[in-house]
Design a protein around this nucleic acid. Structure first.
Lengths: 149, 149
DNA sequence: ATAAACCTTAGAGTCAGGTCTAAGGTCAAC
DNA sequence: GTTGACCTTAGACCTGACTCTAAGGTTTAT
């Protein structure tokens, strides 16, 4: 049985975070000393590691709650439930990537248009683009035929 | 001169957001009525639109504060200052994209490994990967030679 | 003259995922 | 038998960008 600081050392999660996860129903210590100290069994440790792994991959704490409830009784759940959660997360990630790529494209167009030198910014094309009533966005949309956002 | 609700209608930013931007030094109304009502001039409107455009591209409010101070007296600032801000933002965006792509790859590997069917999750390979002490991550790192994060 | 539709402010709440603090109790070693 | 390292809790604080509320004042249309 591990004390919380030992579990923290082992998992790389702070004791604060471990208590936070417990408060949110993700993990628990299967025993408590008389004084209330948390003691974690091997089973507890595996659950914490499951959470950490899922977190590291990018699942939210709510996703992980769902995954944990499947994990608790796998025979009552299907692979499809698991892939549904995973696919939803993948869709989120893809949507966010698309947004960021759109930002990247705009930023790159801005950078390409500007000399970037020590000259006064009086005629800086980036500043002009930002002043110019969404022109950069319009330009980008025209090139990409984008409907995004 | 526009009242705040008119400016809101014109920019698509809520009156709440406009006041919030003002509180944070991004914009202001060049006049106030005796009762304290904000009145926005054309110059004010252009500044608000500048903020909105920059925000839409993905600049943070702090980035925009920097851009605005350049905008206020362009002759005292260089193109390089502008491109520095833009490049820093581009680097942020690229870093975030890389993180998300790593997540995407892991999620895709998980999905590829799982049948996704109505079968019991007892032997679900996604669940196994999440249980298996970072194995999915290790696998991914091996394939990509990744050092990221 | 009164109701509807506006406007003001300070300050609280929201989201996610922690992170930290205060005030105190416990335990092992010397 | 006390020092220092650990543990407990409730609850505040953090980031960033809003979003909303309460309580009140103003303007406009009828």
């Amino acid at each position: 049985m591990l004390k919380i600081s030992e579990l923290s050392a082992r998992t790389g999660l702070s004791t604060h975070t471990l208590r936070y996860y417990e408060k949110h129903g993700l993990i628990s210590a299967s025993e408590r000393s008389e004084a209330g100290y948390r003691y974690y069994s091997d089973t507890d440790v595996r659950r914490v590691e499951f959470v950490r792994t899922a977190r590291h991959i990018g699942f939210s704490l709510n996703d992980i709650l769902d995954l944990l409830s499947i994990r608790l009784d796998k025979s009552r759940h299907s692979c499809q439930e698991v892939t549904d959660i995973t696919e939803a997360k993948l869709a989120e990630v893809n949507a966010r990537i698309a947004e960021l790529q759109s930002m990247r494209q705009t930023l790159q167009i801005l950078l390409d248009s500007c000399c970037g030198g020590p000259e006064s910014a009086t005629h800086c094309s980036i500043m002009e683009a930002l002043e110019a009533e969404q022109e950069a966005e319009v330009e980008k949309d025209r090139r990409l035929g984008s409907d995004a956002r």
